[in-house]
């Protein structure tokens, strides 16, 4: 049974991977936009970004998914489950990413740059030699946690009828009643996926010189 469930789950893996990758990339970008707003000189913009952050951080992503999926459908602008799920995940995780960036920026700070310049570095050199290695060391570990959280959150789109691994596993259980084997397979696949994300990020830390 273990071997028979795998191919069906593997079909769902493509959806899970696609959604995870899109959500990670778009969250990274949305986080940059948010942190620029958060550190802007315009007070209203700063406040709006801070308010946004509290809103997404303090509400469940499942409720946000329902809000977009059922809300837009009722308003006549039907979003697919995939799109609604992706939208909710990007809005929420973009907020977390912006906080990770902010912590990195505020900790490394302008003085480090000035110190680099005072030592006769050009601005790009100061960034490359002084700022970047310190920022990477601060930012990558929490970012890894966030990526793992995103991969795990993709399972929620199964409640919007998106045929990811979780959804296919439930279909299989309803059809075959071999619940133990299917859950063993499913758990194993998520474990491998999250471990792979963590390992890749660890490799990135090494590569970027963030590990002593």
């Amino acid at each position: 049974m273990m071997a028979r469930a795998m191919p069906v789950l593997l079909d769902g893996l493509a959806v899970t991977l696609e959604l995870s990758a899109l959500a990670i990339v778009l969250s990274l970008i949305w986080g940059v936009v948010l942190v620029l707003g958060r550190l802007s000189h315009l007070r209203p913009l700063r406040l709006a970004c801070a308010g946004y952050l509290q809103l997404v951080r303090n509400t469940p992503v499942l409720v946000q998914m329902y809000f977009f999926y059922f809300g837009f459908a009722m308003a006549g602008l039907r979003l697919s489950g995939f799109t609604a799920g992706l939208l909710a995940m990007v809005l929420q995780n973009g907020g977390y990413m912006s906080e990770i960036y902010r912590a990195g920026i505020e900790t490394v700070g302008a003085r480090q740059r000035e110190a680099g310049l005072a030592l006769g570095m050009r601005p790009f050199e100061a960034f490359q030699i002084v700022i970047f290695p310190q920022a990477v060391r601060l930012v990558l570990p929490p970012m890894t946690n966030q990526f793992v959280a995103i991969v795990k959150d993709t399972a929620l789109v199964s409640t919007l009828s998106v045929a990811d691994m979780m959804f296919r596993a439930r279909l299989l259980i309803d059809r075959t009643a071999a619940a133990f084997e299917i859950f063993a397979d499913l758990t194993l696949m998520y474990l491998v996926l999250t471990a792979a994300v963590a390992l890749l990020m660890r490799a990135a830390e090494w590569r970027l010189g963030a590990v002593d």
């Binding site: 795990k152 959150d153 993709t154 399972a155 499913l186 758990t187 998520y190 474990l191 999250t194 471990a195």
Partner: peptide, 8 residues
Amino acid sequence: MRGTPLLV
């Protein structure tokens, strides 16, 4: 627990 989704 940390490597699998709560929904699972």
